[in-house]
Design a protein around this nucleic acid. Sequence first.
DNA 1: CCAATATAGCTTGCCATCGATATATATCGA
DNA 2: TCGATATATATCGATGGCAAGCTATATTGG
Lengths: 176, 176
Amino acid sequence: MLELAILGFLHDEPLHGYELRKRIAALTGHVRPIADGTLYPAIKRLERAGLLGRDLQPGTLAAPRHVLTLSPAGRGELLRRLREPEELFLTDENRWFTLLAFLRHLRDPAEQATVLRRRLTFLTQPASFFWDGDRPLRAADFDDPFRQGLFTIATATSRAEIRWLRDTLALLESDG
Amino acid sequence: MLELAILGFLHDEPLHGYELRKRIAALTGHVRPIADGTLYPAIKRLERAGLLGRDLQPGTLAAPRHVLTLSPAGRGELLRRLREPEELFLTDENRWFTLLAFLRHLRDPAEQATVLRRRLTFLTQPASFFWDGDRPLRAADFDDPFRQGLFTIATATSRAEIRWLRDTLALLESDG
DNA sequence: CCAATATAGCTTGCCATCGATATATATCGA
DNA sequence: TCGATATATATCGATGGCAAGCTATATTGG
């Protein structure tokens, strides 16, 4: 998730670590903050893998900046991760939202549509929590108000997203 | 998250690991599967901390079962975690949903309401991603359809949950 | 009778993340 | 001038999660 965000932000423009830190905080930090001790090792990891380049810049404001650039291999890796996301990126909301934030980088509408279709398949497939064997559960089937809420919220959420997915898929198909 | 789920399920009744594994899978496995290599060490951890007891039962179907029981200390710890959840449990959906699934164990409506109010505060507080400095963003402010979607879905989701939170808070307050 | 599957539990090695801590520089207000 | 804050990067130890593999037994279907 973090690596995807790093690659995704750097696809737009080179950034130094501190700026990257702020952008990531603005994107997902509200929900799940990223510690410094997570970000910098992640940058090193991507750098060692040849996905990032680094240029030293004398500090304009404070300590010297390390400007990070996405290498061609990095761009390829980003597109690969967007095109063929692992299952977790389709089921876990945090990861899925991160992916969605950068899906525009995948220029081909057909490829974008393929990813959205996989998410749609996941969302329209029944969640085990909401089934009692073969019988679909309703909010009234839960005796406590909190599980009722869980159900109500999950249903509303998934309905809103399914609607958006269908609309957007129609749009992408009419484009391509 | 996993530890909360273990303690939460065992509050209802003693269970052996395999059954626990299935219940957790039914609750959150759809979105985020739990590996065996994660569950069993977590059980040991809680056991070592004195939160769980263990009784050997000759296998009724296969290998002998280790029936796990919530100790008084374990019950205390569960209630503490429900009553005073860490920030991450209020912001991260996965964790929040897990917490919600067991919030009924906190018997006092006033305490339950306090937790819901903290979530409401988080949800009604503006997310940095959706603000440009002081200006709130609208879906039309995003140029690509995927970030538009992100915004649309997040808004719909949060609206549905806020409505439920307000309704349920009213209910809890009228009860207590 | 044999293979597959379900039940049942556990370990090991690897890797990612977190919290704490360290180091420096520039700016701004008291 | 001193402390606070913002900018900027990095390391380290502990923890926790994951994939893979291991060991059993009982049932079911071919």
